Simulated assay, not measured.
Amino acid sequence: MNSTTPSSFLSQWTGPALNVIDASIPKSDYIAIDLSKANQDLNTFDVASSSAWEIYMTNYLKAHNKQVAFGGYLETRNLYNRSAYFSAQAETEQRNIHIGLDLWCPANTAVLSCFDGTIHSFNNNTNFGDYGPTIIVKHTINNETFYTLYGHLNEASIANLKVGGTVAQGETIAHLGDASVNGDYAPHLHFQIILDIQDKTGDYPGVCCLNTLAFYKSNTVDPGPILGL
């Protein structure tokens, strides 16, 4: 693969650390969080309850004196077991591997476009455990095209959008939703970098199964280094 392909350009990021939520929050106020099956703390509360999740996240941030908890790229999680939307009979077809980066912080936090781009599509994905309001932005840099997805927004974020509308890097394009609209989660942003959107509109898988992991690893990019995390 040559150095000008999208996957190489983004996976070998050498630019400045970018922001996808309120840029006034310094990166020193971010802290990593493990939501994988290995985290025994997740056995101490009802992971099917969004209010219990919000209490857990609030306490985690308070205990570490931070404002944002982040993580989850390629993390295998049990929390999706609560929703039939992700379930399957065969273990290798169980959708439980997270292929975006989550940033956990309060509802109504500003969401920023990671790069200059145009609105590709948007939708309110209302399945239980889904994204809720979602925006996908198309970007072309160095003649290479890729996409960023912003999920778990509030409904106002997509109320007046127009496909093809331009957005600037760092521009506020949305705000985070609460559990009543965001798929029934504690407030957070699901941020994902996608190379080939595969004709999807307003939606793209953010969780995959073991059988499809190789494809999604090749079609997504770890956002952590790009965000300086």
Rank of each mutant, 00 (worst) to 15 (best):
S11Q: 08
W13N: 02
W13P: 02
W13L: 07
P16F: 15
P16T: 15
L18K: 11
D22F: 02
A23G: 15
D34R: 05
S36M: 10
A38S: 13
Q40C: 09
D41G: 02
D41H: 06
D41Q: 06
A48D: 14
L61P: 03
H64Q: 14
N65Y: 11
V68Y: 05
G72W: 04
Y73F: 05
L74T: 15
L74K: 12
L74C: 13
T76Q: 12
N78K: 11
Y80A: 02
Y80L: 06
N81H: 14
A90N: 08
G100H: 01
D102L: 04
P106C: 11
T109D: 14
C114G: 11
T118N: 03
T118Y: 01
H120W: 00
H120M: 00
F122V: 01
N124V: 10
T126N: 05
N127Y: 15
Y131W: 09
P133E: 04
I135F: 01
V137S: 01
K138P: 04
T145H: 04
T145Q: 07
T145D: 04
T148V: 02
L153D: 07
N154R: 09
N154C: 11
I158W: 04
N160T: 14
K162V: 08
K162D: 11
V163E: 09
G164D: 01
G165V: 08
V167T: 03
A168K: 15
Q169S: 07
H175I: 12
L176H: 06
G177W: 10
A179V: 12
V181S: 06
Y185N: 08
A186Y: 12
P187R: 12
F191H: 03
L195C: 02
I197H: 01
I197P: 00
Q198G: 10
Q198M: 11
G202F: 02
Y204G: 05
G206E: 01
C209P: 06
N211H: 13
L213I: 05
F215V: 02
Y216T: 13
N219D: 06
N219E: 04
G224C: 14
